[in-house]
Amino acid sequence: MVMIGGTCKLERVIHVDSDSKAADDGQLIAQARNDPAAFVQLYRRHYDAVFRYCVHRLFERQTAQDVTSAVFLSVVENFSRFRGGEQQFRNWLYKITTNAVNSHLRQAARRNVLLKRAYEQVNNQNSTDVSAEKLALLREAVLTLRPRYQTIITLRFFENLKLTEIAEVLGCGAGTVRSQLARALAKLRKVLATEFTEKSEVIENEQ
């Protein structure tokens, strides 16, 4: 289990393969074009981040693994067309992962299964584990959003990307991301109304 939390910002935990630290991504990216070993090193460096993003979007480890596999196979297939350095590569990975996740979610049957499981978890919640309850609520709430809104919420709050970085991943302007983030949060506010209200009351009381 990994706790995502923090005093100011949600914390993103990234494991970097120790062998991969030697060379920077820019150099690795260049080498990886002709050298499978270099590509594997690049893969090791980014696997964890891609997997976590998938988990944060899909809320299921097994599904996240499947999508992660599809993402990296797609990376292999399209790597020759990638141009750019380390930052661009990371954003490119997020873009591919976002497309893969959204594609998965768009298949209504799968989405319905996820929703059903989310509802079951909420309704069968006998645990006193506040975090587990919150996770179930979060899952229920986020999965009701359009995939694009889900993407923005996850990238912003769980992957800690800046609005400009999200804009690059989504291929739009930062202003668009900002307005869509606001709309996504407004929808979440409705679903999570009780939670938000309680929080607000606590904050007000503390003040």
Partner: peptide, 14 residues
Amino acid sequence: FEDFARGIKFDDNP
């Protein structure tokens, strides 16, 4: 939303 999400445990260990 950040307050709400803070402290949520994800089983996201690769």
